[in-house]
Simulated assay, not measured.
Amino acid sequence: MAKGMGRSPKVDLESGVEDATLLILQWLGEQGVGALIRIDAERLRDGQPAWTFAASGGPLEAGMRADGASVAECMGRALLRLREAGLAVPF
């Protein structure tokens, strides 16, 4: 898929990624990547995607962010972006 085409790859919400989130964060830290996941109560209250994943450092050339309405959606998007950035996350 070409970047900037306005299309997003589909996120697999049934993959169980929310169960592996802490393991993914630990693996990223071992690669020198600082990462976090958080929920924003204000965005949740306003009906916006409240979950955010952010990462930077290590082999990432630039920082990255992924948002989602659930942990599964957020982490699914994050994994897609990490893989696009060249990190072969073992999940």
Rank of each mutant, 00 (worst) to 15 (best):
A55V: 06
A41D: 13
F53G: 03
C74M: 05
G68V: 08
A35P: 01
V71D: 06
R7G: 08
D67M: 13
E18H: 13
A69P: 03
V17E: 05
R83F: 12
L44M: 06
L79S: 00
P59E: 06
R83T: 15
L25Y: 09
L44A: 15
L60E: 06
S56E: 12
Q48A: 10
A78S: 11
G57P: 02
S70C: 14
A55H: 07
G6M: 11
V89T: 04
A54L: 10
G86S: 10
R65F: 01
R38S: 12
E18M: 09
S15M: 03
D19C: 03
Q31A: 10
L60D: 02
S56N: 10
G58T: 01
G76H: 06
Q48W: 00
V71K: 11
D19K: 14
D19R: 13
G29K: 06
G76I: 04
Q48N: 10
S56A: 14
I37W: 07
A72G: 13
I24Q: 05
L23Y: 07
A50Y: 02
D67W: 10
Q31I: 01
A66D: 01
T21K: 00
M1W: 08
L79A: 02
G86V: 02
V11D: 06
T21H: 00
G63F: 07
G29T: 06
T21Y: 05
L44S: 12
Q48T: 00
A50K: 06
M5L: 14
G32K: 00
R43D: 12
R7P: 01
G4V: 12
T21D: 02
A62H: 14
S70V: 11
E14N: 14
A2S: 14
T21S: 08
E84G: 11
M75A: 03
W27R: 08
P9I: 05
V17R: 03
F91E: 00
I24H: 04
D40F: 02
L13A: 09
L36K: 11
E42S: 07
G32T: 00
P9C: 07
L25V: 14
L13E: 09
L22N: 13
G57N: 01
D40T: 08
V33R: 04
F53N: 04
Q26G: 09
A50M: 01
M1V: 13
D12S: 07
L82Y: 05
P9K: 10
A66H: 03
A72D: 08
G4S: 14
G16F: 07
G32Y: 00
I39H: 04
E14M: 09
L80R: 06
L36F: 09
Q48V: 07
R45V: 00
R38W: 03
A66E: 02
A41S: 14
A54C: 09
L79K: 02
L80C: 03
I24E: 02
L60R: 08
G34E: 05
V89Y: 04
L60K: 08
V11G: 01
E18K: 13
R77M: 08
A50S: 14
D67T: 15
A69D: 12
G6C: 12
E30R: 11
Q26K: 14
L23W: 09
P90I: 00
G4A: 15
A55R: 06
W27K: 07
P9S: 09
L80S: 07
